[in-house]
Each structure stands twice: as C-alpha cells, then as structure tokens.
C-alpha cells in the first residue's frame, strides 16, 4: 500500500458506517456513564472512552491509517499524553 500520503485514498463506505456505529455506541456508553455513575467514576469513564473515539476518528475519518507509522505514532503519543495529563489533574480534583 502506498504510504506517501500524496494521493487520494477512498475508504470503503462499509468501514466508515461500521466505525460510525461504534462511535454512536461509545457515545451512548458515555452518556450512560455520565448519568448513572458517581461523578468521580464517570470522569474515568470519560477519560477512557473519549480518547478511543478521538483515535477512531483520527484513524479512519482523518485517514491517519494511510500515513507513515511515525506520524501515526506521534499523533497517538500526543493523544495519550493529553489523557495522562488530564488524568493526573483529576487525581487531585476528585480526592481532595
């Protein structure tokens, strides 16, 4: 597969629909966690589910799938760092 990113890639509609359904499911899970769980727990649910959703969008809808591994890695490391930073912040806010 060409990984130069210089040409247009066509993602099959079937894949896009499947990812969209997964995203809908995850959004439902997020709403359920927000309404049923204790606030401190729902934050952790958010910290797990939201990056997964963002990752899926980057990977499929924003065509990160066709980029070089280095760029893919940089995006996901940055996303992971963001989650870690926010997680550490909440380790303070919810246990004071």
């Amino acid at each position: 597969m060409d990984r130069t990113g210089s040409e247009t890639h066509v993602m099959p509609y079937r894949t896009l629909v499947r990812v969209w359904l997964v995203l809908l499911g995850l959004t439902g899970a997020l709403v359920a966690a927000g309404t049923t769980l204790h606030p401190s727990l729902s934050v952790w649910a958010m910290l797990v589910i939201t990056p997964v959703k963002a990752g899926l969008i980057f990977y499929y809808f924003m065509h990160l799938k066709y980029e070089k591994p280095l760029l893919t890695g940089l995006v996901f490391v940055t996303l992971g760092l963001l989650v870690l930073v926010i997680g550490l912040l909440f380790s303070d806010l919810f246990y004071r």
């Binding site: 550490l88 380790s91 919810f94 246990y95």
Partner: peptide
C-alpha cells in the same frame, strides 16, 4: 518531565493521592 508538575504543589492543598 511532563508528568511531574504537581511536585511544586505538595503543600498547596492537593489531594493525598495526587
């Protein structure tokens, strides 16, 4: 180094866990 900022705040009233 991006994950250690809280050590400036040990006496600021942060949680024990943090």
């Amino acid at each position: 180094g991006s994950l250690v900022w809280g050590h400036h705040m040990f006496t600021s009233g942060m949680s024990e866990q943090a």
